[in-house]
Every structure is written in structure tokens, then in C-alpha cells.
Design a binder for these strands. Structure first.
Lengths: 208, 208
DNA sequence: CCTAACTTGTGAACTAATTCACAAGCCCCT
DNA sequence: AGGGGCTTGTGAATTAGTTCACAAGTTAGG
């Protein structure tokens, strides 16, 4: 498969969320124009995005909502349950652990790890806080495919290296640092400072 | 000023974080090559990014670390304190309110808003939970320039419309929906589902 | 004062992403 | 069965973003 742009994948995820809304309203078909309007893009963009993966519509008619959403779910890899662990039992880790949005999309959070002995062993809802020292063992046992990192900047790269070595293939980081991973590991980083600074840049420089 | 690509702004924010580290180590000068290595990009990219805003280095020598970081701070609009409110006193709102990273970058979180009467009036650290009904009044009084949205999907657009009408110029959203704002308002949205799905896509489709 | 070793700043070349524009296919109506 | 009205899928054109490559400064050393 030709390399797909990240912006394309993000839009596919967006289209899928629209399809789920449309499906919930019981509407059977939709068009590239509908999806474009909802997503703030153009119908040509929607069709081009889909065209990388095949031909899912009917000319003159549009797309079958259930069919297209099934296809998109498969393309995005959502056909399976994904087991996720959260690393870091601080404020952000706590919020993520209890975040209902995960389950709604097929992501199962089954543990939180921390190195603080006063936190290890406690229960958050039905999720247990485990000892960070056991991380490798649990990953190697196949407990998780994805790790969500919610730790301070200075320990983030060390933990990335550890989970990568243990076999994790996907990492979502909330640590405010630049991280590096081998090319066969997928990494997404949400950096709050960066988000806020693109905002302040836009506010400061608008109408130039 | 020519329109600056968002990717450029994000990298500037990254360069600034590197400069702060370098400055903390007491190193007086740096080069586009150094910044590129830290940021996983190329030196030509660094120089091009900076060139949109002026000429900050000395040929043969590189960049003065304090000078370049001052310039970047000004470019990014970090010369002033930014007053921020969090909307939504749920798990994510709580984590954001106490997130130390904000203050470190000159962002002051002075209030959290919620509509739940059982939360209104309580204190989180030195931040008070206020009545969401007072949002417009406080924004109009100039209490905040930026709103951080941590509310459920179905109330997010309504709140965006309210804060925009009251005069907010920058919004950072964590709600899992597509939002629309007028063109003079800056919006950044962090959508967890989207981040996770780009991960699962990458894991599922790797080595094709 | 001249040369060697560097590093910036920037047009030009290249690569990637988006938008255009239209032939082809499909449905409905008469 | 044929025409009109839609909408897809996709090459071609355009626009945006990145990388190349090198002249022009700068410093250090002799």
C-alpha cells in the first residue's frame, strides 16, 4: 500500500465519527458532500481520502452508511479490541483511566502503573494501580498493545525505551517532551504547551 | 505577514523548549544543526522556519541562546501572561486545572466553571469552581483570553458559541467532536479518539 | 592580512497534499 | 427505453511544504 498521509488518517477517523452519528439517526446513505460539510473540508478531499483504500460508494447515490463505517473501522484497525495501559498515576493518568471515551471506541484500559509505593495496589474504579517495575513482565505476557504515557518530562524517554524493548507497538504520550522511538513503533504525542502556543501565536498574529 | 504554516508554529514552540533546556545548562550559543537534531528535523528546516520572522543568527557562529529564545517567545505571543479558564469540572478539567505545566509557560488558570450545583463553590487548590452561568459575565469583564474546554461532546459546541459571543479569542478543546468557530477565533482541538485511531491504523497497516 | 573551517539565510528544485474538473455510473420518472 | 439529475472516482493542475545547495558572513589561527 502506498504511504498514507497522517492528515488522511485523521480525517478518516473524523468521517467515522460522523458516520456513527448519522447511523444513530437511522439515515441509510450519505455523500462525500455531507461528510465534507460536517468535517469542514471539501467533497473532493473526502473522495480522495477514501480512494486510497478502495471504492466504497455508488455513483449517483452516495455511500451506504453502515457499509462505509464498517470499512472505515477495518481500515483504522478497529476490528479488534485494543488493550491499553496507562503509565503514570498522577492527575492526567487518573483522568485518562476513567475516561469513558476509550471504551466507546473499543479500547480497554486494564491497568495503571506507577512507581510510587503509596499508590501501588490501590484501586481506581475497576482498574488497579500496579508496580511500574512489573511493566516489562506484563507487556511481554501480551497484556497490552498500546501504552499511554502520563509521566513527567524527565522520565518519559526512559519509560518509552522500556516499553518499546518489552514489545509495545503503539504509544500515546502526554509528556511535554520530544520522544524518539524505533521506526516500527507508532508514536503520537500530545503536547499541551505546543497546543497553547499555537493558540497564542494565532491570537497575537491574527489579521496580518 | 505571509501566512505561516501551522507545522512551522509547532516547530517554533519545540525549538523554544530546546532553547530553554540549553539555556538552563548555561550553553551560550547553538546552531540550526543542534536544534534540528533535538527536534528530529533538518537544519535547513530550522533555518527556513526562523527565516519567516527575520534573521536571528550570525553566520559561522550560530544563534545566541538567550536572544533566540526571547525572539521566539515574542513571536509565539508569550511576552504576556495569558489568563485561562477551564470549562468543565470533570476528570479532565481537574487534571488540567492542577497541571503545573501551564504556569511554567506563563498561563494562569484562575477558575473552573461547571453547571453542577454540587461542584460550584468548592475549591481545587487555589482555584474556585464557579457557576457556568457566570461565564459570559466574567469573560466580558476581561478575566480570560483563553478557554480550555473539558466538557462532554454534546454540550461542547453550545459552550463554544457562548464563549465566542462573550469575546474569547482562543479555545483549546478536549471534547471528542468537531467544533466550528468564526474565523477570527483560534481553535485547537485535541481529540483522543483520533489520536488513538491514528495509532491503531499505523500498527495495523505497518510494513505494507 | 590571508586562509581554513563553519554556519547562516535563501532562491531554486523537489516532494507532498489539495483542489479542479469531468467522464462514467446509477436511479428515477415518464 | 431514454433523458435528466446526481454523485462517485480519478487523472491533471495547482498549491503548500520541505530539502538542496551555495553565496555570503564570521571567527580563529598563523
Amino acid at each position: 500500500m502506498r504511504r498514507i498521509a497522517e492528515s488522511t488518517v485523521r480525517r478518516l477517523s473524523l468521517y467515522l465519527s460522523f458516520l456513527e452519528e448519522i447511523e444513530a439517526r437511522g439515515v441509510p446513505t450519505t455523500s462525500s458532500e455531507d461528510l465534507a460539510r460536517l468535517g469542514g473540508t471539501t467533497s473532493a478531499q473526502v473522495r480522495k481520502d477514501l480512494s486510497f483504500f478502495g471504492s466504497f460508494g455508488k455513483r449517483g447515490l452516495g455511500y451506504s452508511v453502515p457499509e462505509l463505517s464498517t470499512r472505515l473501522r477495518r481500515i483504522l484497525g478497529l476490528g479488534q479490541q485494543w488493550r491499553v495501559c496507562i503509565i503514570g498515576a498522577g492527575k492526567i493518568g487518573a483522568a485518562l483511566t476513567r475516561y469513558a471515551g476509550f471504551a466507546a471506541r473499543g479500547f480497554v484500559v486494564s491497568a495503571v502503573y506507577d512507581s510510587d509505593p503509596s499508590k501501588i495496589g490501590s484501586r481506581w474504579g475497576n482498574v488497579k494501580v500496579r508496580d511500574e517495575a512489573d511493566l516489562e513482565r506484563d507487556i511481554e505476557a501480551g497484556d497490552y498493545q498500546i501504552a499511554v504515557l502520563a509521566v513527567p518530562a524527565d522520565s518519559a524517554q526512559k519509560l518509552v525505551d522500556r516499553v518499546v524493548k518489552a514489545g509495545i507497538k503503539g504509544i500515546l504520550s502526554f509528556a511535554p517532551v520530544q520522544l524518539t522511538v524505533p521506526s516500527d513503533v507508532a508514536l503520537r504525542a500530545v503536547n499541551m504547551a505546543m497546543e497553547l502556543e499555537t493558540l497564542t501565536f494565532a491570537i497575537t498574529n491574527k489579521a496580518d
